[in-house]
């Protein structure tokens, strides 16, 4: 199967197979006005199978959240048919409205329109705690 290469844009590669749609939703790519391709179950020497997302425009996306979802993901920035940058995204220091606090005693369970914010407290163990009640996020 062939998908056209992109001239200017972002390629999110090495996504765990079948997780592409989750990332599409987390980054709200459906709201963009450019072409976005999700390739699922592509062959990968490293991973066996993987998903890839191609975004046909160099836009300013908050990609930090990808570091939380899957640290193995690689980001490729394409300009004039050339890859000008390739990197892994670091764990974000703070994540908003991606995970919900499960502590029934947390203020987020009752306060209207309060954002669910988690703070990175241990980088090595990938530990996040609720900003309000400090409850650990159990993945």
């Amino acid at each position: 199967m062939n998908i056209d290469s992109i001239k200017d844009g972002i390629v999110i590669d090495h996504i765990q197979a079948k997780k592409g749609l989750d990332i599409y939703n987390a980054l709200k790519l459906g709201e963009l006005d450019c072409s976005v391709a999700i390739i699922t179950n592509a062959k990968s020497n490293k991973m066996g199978r993987k998903d890839i997302i191609k975004i046909d425009k160099n836009i300013d996306l908050d990609l930090n959240i990808l570091g939380y979802i899957d640290p193995n993901i690689t980001i490729n920035i394409i300009e004039n048919d050339e890859r000008v940058d390739k990197y892994h995204v670091e764990l974000p220091k703070e994540i908003t409205n991606i995970i919900k606090c499960k502590n029934p005693r947390c203020i987020t369970s009752i306060e209207q329109e309060l954002k669910h914010i988690f703070i990175l407290t241990d980088k090595e163990k990938r530990t996040y705690r609720c900003k309000y009640c400090e409850t650990l996020n159990e993945e």
Binding site: R105, I107, E111, Y132
Partner: peptide, 10 residues
């Protein structure tokens, strides 16, 4: 004082 944890921070 509030029964919900994090209420004073909010």
């Amino acid at each position: 004082r509030h029964p919900k944890e994090g209420a004073p921070l909010v």
